[in-house]
């Protein structure tokens, strides 16, 4: 059992991390009061921007290209998120529909551009990030084997962002204002908070994070831009709700999805699980999410004003 666990753990983590960072992006957006169903599309845009940058730069800078790709991915996600911000903040559009438009536009536009650039709709990168052992810590008993061997640098980056996000949301004035905008924008407004600006920042941040999530998929386990992130953005959205709009809750929810999906993927080769029908293992995370949503329904911590456009005169 222990060997199996140490074998599948890196895969579970690799699957968790892009979900985690994307859900964190969603957290900022929704806590500020803007529902962002476009996370899926923003991940695709990040994956495209990153793949393109890495593809073009890799011959010249074999080492630095990946990191430049990460930055380009975050930037492209942030810029694309402006479309959602403009529609939902300035124009009071239905945020779910605007997000859906973002998803459709991202999937179509990136493949269109990729086809013009590479001929096929895909962009393959020569190499991504390499796994590494953390010195000293990796030789610790138990934890060393699980957490500090064969890790991607991006994993530590995302965990650092998670800690920072918690700090910003709960320990800074900006975080308090951001949460206030999502709970009661008019109260925040009368206290002198610029609701528009806070929400813009939050949506841009969610785009950057989702873009990062998309590029992490590319540079860790997929290695190729294909115009889709196979529903991971929607899964991140579900994790956000499963995790009840809290950073640590999101960490738990995304890790649950990462672990459950990995188990479903490797069940064939694990004697303990081979007897369970594959379909049950595959649908397990989704069914459990539905059950969790029922359980949380009475005590839901959803931001009160999420999804509601803010208008000055309306009280």
């Amino acid at each position: 059992m222990w060997t199996v666990l140490t074998q599948i753990f890196p895969y579970a983590v690799a699957f968790t991390i892009p979900l985690l960072i994307t859900a964190l992006g969603g957290l900022f957006s929704e806590r500020s009061g803007v529902v962002n169903i476009g996370l899926e599309g923003l991940m695709v845009v990040g994956s495209f921007g990153g793949a393109l940058a890495i593809f073009k730069l890799q011959p010249a800078f074999p080492n630095g290209a990946v990191w430049i790709g990460i930055m380009v991915a975050m930037l492209s996600g942030a810029v694309f998120a402006l479309l959602h911000a403009f529609a939902s903040i300035n124009l009071s559009a239905n945020q779910v529909i605007s997000g859906t438009a973002i998803n459709m536009l991202a999937g179509a536009l990136t493949v269109f551009l990729a086809r013009n650039i590479t001929g096929s709709g895909n962009i393959r990168i020569a190499s991504g990030l390499t796994r590494m052992d953390i010195p000293v810590l990796s030789s610790l008993p138990v934890v060393g084997k699980l957490f500090f061997t064969q890790t991607y640098p991006s994993t530590w980056l995302v965990l650092a962002i998670l800690g920072l996000s918690w700090y910003v949301l709960y320990q800074t004035a900006f975080g308090l204002r951001l949460r206030a905008c999502g709970e009661h924008p008019h109260a925040a407004d009368s206290a002198g908070v610029n609701v528009f600006r806070v929400r813009y920042l939050a949506v841009i941040l969610s785009g950057a994070f989702a873009g990062l999530g998309g590029v992490i998929i590319l540079i860790t386990y997929s290695g190729e831009f294909t115009g889709s992130v196979s529903g991971l953005g929607f899964l991140a959205l579900a994790s956000l709700i499963f995790g009840q709009w809290k950073p640590l809750g999101i960490l738990g929810a995304t890790f649950f999805f990462g672990f459950a999906s990995t188990i479903a993927n490797v069940s064939q080769v694990m004697p303990a699980l081979a007897s369970i029908p594959g379909v049950l293992l595959k649908v397990f995370p989704y069914v459990l999410t539905l059950i969790a949503l029922i359980i949380f329904s009475k005590t839901t911590q959803a931001p009160r004003a999420a999804g509601e456009p803010f208008e000055h005169g309306k009280r």
């Binding site: 529609a87 529909i97 605007s98 859906t100 438009a101 973002i102 459709m104 536009l105 179509a108 269109f112």
Partner: peptide, 14 residues
């Protein structure tokens, strides 16, 4: 698909 998505964005921002 791009045209359709753009139409939807404009319809959403009616």
């Amino acid at each position: 698909d791009t045209i359709i998505a753009t139409i939807i964005y404009f319809a959403a921002t009616s």
